[in-house]
């Protein structure tokens, strides 16, 4: 006989507990991953700007703009970096990666600024731009644009992976909990079925081969108690002494 009602609250509690764990973990995960990845990309972008700036010194002093462009072209291959431009100390654009041309928003910006700034370039996307001076700014500035769409995609992917893992754990946990509850409920079902048969048939000897009587747990003790009472025609309150456990 199936036990339905006894563990209803237990099951609900398990669902609620796992749900709360998943929700809180997911929220924490979104915040942590988003913050960490954004910070990491910003630091990387800043480091790239500094690296380009440091690498550009000799090239700029040699007036070798082809090599400078070649250097810039290599850095643009790094994931997330969408544009780089290098300005001279007077604001001339000495090398850049814009096609078909330098956007007006860039042309109108302060080429000396090195503070991170968010730029919305029509037709290109939204970028976080980081600058770095070359020779303390006397030789010019490097500006590197990080594509925030790429960063957002990276964050989404990382969060998705985390939530996927938590969801899998949730499903496995809930299924395991249900299985364990059912495992615990099975002897009770057998005991209930035995008690019902005993009450219906009234012949305890005909039911003496039931498996529940052989169980070495509380359900087995109860079943044997019911059998004892049925054999002796006793009411539960008149029974004395109680039978000892089989072991």
């Amino acid at each position: 006989m199936k036990i339905e009602k006894l563990f209803q609250r237990t099951r609900f509690g398990i669902f609620a507990m796992f749900g709360a764990i998943v929700l809180s973990t997911s929220i924490l995960c979104v915040i942590t991953v988003s913050t960490e990845i954004s910070a990491e990309y910003e630091i990387n972008t800043s480091n790239i700007a500094k690296t380009v700036a440091n690498s550009s010194v000799d090239i700029l002093l040699n007036r070798d703009l082809a090599t400078l462009q070649s250097l810039v072209d290599q850095f643009i291959e790094i994931q997330g970096i969408r544009y780089i431009y290098i300005t001279s100390e007077t604001g001339d654009y000495l090398a850049h990666t814009f096609v078909p041309g330098i956007p007006d928003e860039i042309l109108a910006s302060d080429h000396r600024s090195t503070e991170p700034v968010e730029r919305d370039l029509p037709g290109l996307g939204i970028f976080l731009e980081v600058g770095s001076p070359i020779l303390a700014g006397v030789a010019g500035h490097v500006h590197v644009g990080m594509d925030l769409d790429v960063v957002a995609l990276k964050i989404q992917r990382a969060i998705g992976q985390q939530i996927y893992l938590v969801a899998v754990i949730l499903v496995i946990g809930v299924l395991a909990a249900i299985w364990l509850v059912n495992l615990a409920a099975r002897p009770l079902g057998e005991l209930l079925a035995y008690a019902v048969e005993l009450a219906r048939d009234g012949d305890p000897e005909a039911l003496a081969d039931r498996a529940v009587l052989a169980r070495n747990d509380e359900a087995g003790h109860l079943a044997r108690l019911f059998l004892y009472m049925a054999r002796n025609g006793k009411e539960p309150g008149a029974m004395s002494p109680a039978p000892q456990p089989a072991d």
Partner: peptide, 11 residues
Amino acid sequence: QMDAYGRSGWA
């Protein structure tokens, strides 16, 4: 051309 060749000519 947006590369070293183009930049060389531009310069």
